[in-house]
Design a protein around this nucleic acid. Sequence first.
DNA 1: AGTCCTTCTTAAAGCTCGTAAGCAACTGAT
DNA 2: ATCAGTTGCTTACGAGCTTTAAGAAGGACT
Lengths: 191, 191
Amino acid sequence: MARAGVTAERLTQAAAELADEIGFQNVTVSALARAFGVKPAALYSHVKDLQDLRVRVAKLALAELAERAATALAGRSGKDALVAFANAYRGYAKEHPGRYAAAQLEMDYETAADSAAPRHSEMTRAILRGYDLPDSAQTDAVRMLGATFHGYVSLEMVGGFRHTPRSVDESWNRTLDALDALLRNWPSHGR
Amino acid sequence: MARAGVTAERLTQAAAELADEIGFQNVTVSALARAFGVKPAALYSHVKDLQDLRVRVAKLALAELAERAATALAGRSGKDALVAFANAYRGYAKEHPGRYAAAQLEMDYETAADSAAPRHSEMTRAILRGYDLPDSAQTDAVRMLGATFHGYVSLEMVGGFRHTPRSVDESWNRTLDALDALLRNWPSHGR
DNA sequence: AGTCCTTCTTAAAGCTCGTAAGCAACTGAT
DNA sequence: ATCAGTTGCTTACGAGCTTTAAGAAGGACT
């Protein structure tokens, strides 16, 4: 039996591609083994179990997304940076829905900490440097930006915006305008 | 064999409770049958298949959430309404994580249209009446609010905010302040 | 060539969904 | 009150999934 040259990396990569095609939830050990032309049991030499495989895909997705966002951010600041970052995010989700879903996998504290996840908040913080936010508001704004980006993409993906005729791209751009305006005028403990 | 008195409604209800306990993804026909003390095959007399069951739970969750939001909204306007609505949302998600996850299930256009989903955007529109938005911005704002609420709750639930010491409740309240400020000063096609 | 580690296969147990066939219980009509 | 007919449940089963265990085959190294 000729060896198929399976490695954890190639498995993860293939699982990510499979996720984009059939959905992250449908990535199974069996399906992945089929894609490699080996028997399911063979994968267990490279990967602990299905959960392990999923976490690997999640980390891959987070890393790719961080990479893409970093590139988009390079040399930009202010609203330019905000828009580029947000579009990198949304673009990745649209091109790689399976990977994007994977990135939202629940991971334990440890695993999440040594993933690319922290880089995401660091980058968001970098964007905020282009605005004049008090230190105390930094984390709040980071969380709000993350929430809005993720929420928008997430609702768009499950079809939450289908029922209103208005262009989803238009609303996205107006949302970014709104976030920009908000960051330039962040309320200092509002009434 | 004494009849267990299974009905589609009771199944859906039980599935929702089960979802909150073990996670929506882990609600299986088998587990549900166990909870009812019947054999798995018995459920297929009341429910078409697993997908059907999931959709029922999703619709239940959407309806409950709409109900709760409507109650919260009653008699309020402006920022009060915004905050009450948002907290109803987040509160439901925290109390019923499984149901909340179910509410995000992908449904086809038809099914979604006759669920409580449209009521959610209607209520959001109602909130906006307390602010002075141009008609053209309505849908954009509805989408943005939905995105921010859902995104925040969603990221909070997968543990995305664990890595920063700042209180998650604090950030939530500041985010609502920010949204309120934003709605009172919505950019008219900003530069 | 012989040894050893790694990768793969086969085999099997235990779980899942879903269908089919049959029996048991309740319904209503005579 | 008995006797259909309908409905709800069971058993039985096929097919697919995950995971472990044991063994065969590939490749490296002596």
